[in-house]
């Protein structure tokens, strides 16, 4: 008999208040509550977190690496989005 698959969940942890949740790994669990507990028992054993998100891995839509150029190259030619693009005389001071 093939073993039925236990759903996979992605785990995100907020290390300290003020920081965003960050992806730390994954766990297997049948439902969201058990996934949350598994994440707590697996990824916060050394005081790594104050808040946990678990998301079904299947719910994540990812960009295709093959689209990397189309998605991310065009931005490289738009330096006017960065403050260093603009010349301000030093005597004006910090801006």
């Amino acid at each position: 008999m093939t073993e039925p698959k236990m759903p996979l969940w992605e785990v995100f942890i907020r290390a300290r208040s003020g920081l965003a949740h960050r992806h730390v790994g994954s766990v297997h669990a049948a439902d969201a509550e058990m996934a949350l507990q598994a994440a707590r028992d697996t990824y916060t054993r050394r005081g790594e977190g104050l808040s946990i998100w678990v998301v079904p891995s299947a719910a994540i839509t990812a960009s295709d690496p093959a689209d990397k150029d189309a998605l991310f190259e065009p931005t490289a030619s738009k330096p006017y989005r960065h403050p260093t693009f603009y010349d301000i005389p030093p005597e004006v001071g910090h801006m």
Partner: peptide
């Protein structure tokens, strides 16, 4: 029964 539970019971 599963690794997640090895960790939980040890905790």
């Amino acid at each position: 029964p599963m690794i997640e539970e090895d960790l939980a019971l040890a905790n």
